[in-house]
């Protein structure tokens, strides 16, 4: 049924720290790697080794540059994936019941066996989280690695989404955002985590942590000391070097 559950037991989701992300795309690659063999397999590629490779990905890393009024710029790497919204519009528009939100943990999934490939869910999502598989004729999306996070054959520490376990910078965290005492919820509270496009009224579960404010000198921070080519101190330099230094300075 494509009506949304009233409440979900847990609100499993991701917290992405834009202050830490270095834009290495490892999360996107490991997402592709895991999901190409998991629930939504195959994660189809078209022309993978040709001139115009293209295909289904659940995680895309953008890079943005911001410029403020004073002309100061900042580069921010921005991974984009399904936010597992509480009021997921992609679920309610589905005419077949293929799109659903799980009552127990809030994960939004597609039942590919009954999806008719009408693509309306991808129109309803403001975040571009859903990608259509043109070979299979069905819609696909991030599963929050539902087949990994509950997999008892894996060691406990591996039961997190592939994007989280692979992030070399530690920019991604996974947990229950419905529990105010969970580690992720405390992180969101401490760092001012926010929703993407709250005006779209989707109530995303995933949160983003903003880049920390830049140090621009006005707060008393100083630029790091630069090495001088001719140092003021002459300790350890030879006689001729000291003599040259004296003449030239």
């Amino acid at each position: 049924m494509t009506s949304l559950p009233e409440t979900t037991g847990k609100k499993l989701g991701l917290v992405v720290d834009l202050d830490i992300c270095v834009g290495c795309h490892a999360c996107a690659v490991n997402c592709k790697e895991w999901n190409a063999g998991a629930k939504s397999a195959p994660l189809t590629d078209y022309d993978p080794y040709g001139k115009k490779p293209d295909g289904v990905w659940f995680n895309r890393v953008h890079t943005y540059e911001t410029t403020d009024d004073a002309g100061r710029g900042q580069t921010v790497h921005f991974p984009r994936s399904c936010l597992h919204c509480e009021d997921a519009p992609c679920v309610t528009v589905c005419p077949t019941g293929a799109s659903y939100k799980r009552e127990e943990d809030g994960i939004v999934l597609v039942n590919e066996d009954i999806c008719i490939g009408c693509k309306l869910c991808s129109w309803a999502c403001p975040y571009g989280a859903r990608e259509y598989d043109e070979n299979q004729g069905v819609m696909k999306k991030c599963t929050l690695c539902v087949d990994k996070i509950y997999n008892e054959n894996l060691p406990e520490e591996s039961r997190v989404p592939a994007c989280v376990s692979t992030c070399p910078a530690g920019a991604r965290s996974f947990g229950d955002l419905g529990d105010p005492d969970s580690e992720v919820s405390r992180l969101v509270a401490a760092r001012g985590g926010y929703d993407l496009m709250p005006e779209q009224l989707t109530k995303p579960v995933n949160k983003y942590l903003p880049p920390r404010p830049r140090q621009d000198g006005r707060e008393g921070a100083k630029a790091p000391r630069m090495l001088d080519h001719v140092d003021g101190t002459t300790d350890g330099a030879g006689l001729i070097a000291r003599w040259v230094d004296k003449i030239l300075s």
Binding site: L18, G23, H25, A28, W57, R60, V61, H62, T63, Y64, E65, T66, T67, D68, D69, R72, Q74, T75, V76, H77, F78, R80, P126, Y127, Y194, D195, L196, M197, P198, E199, Y208, P210, P211
Partner: peptide
């Protein structure tokens, strides 16, 4: 609002995924 970076000024994409 899409990136949540609006408070930093104008947001432009410099690198596509």
């Amino acid at each position: 609002s899409a990136t949540g970076l609006g408070h930093l000024g104008r947001v432009e994409m410099t690198g596509s995924p």
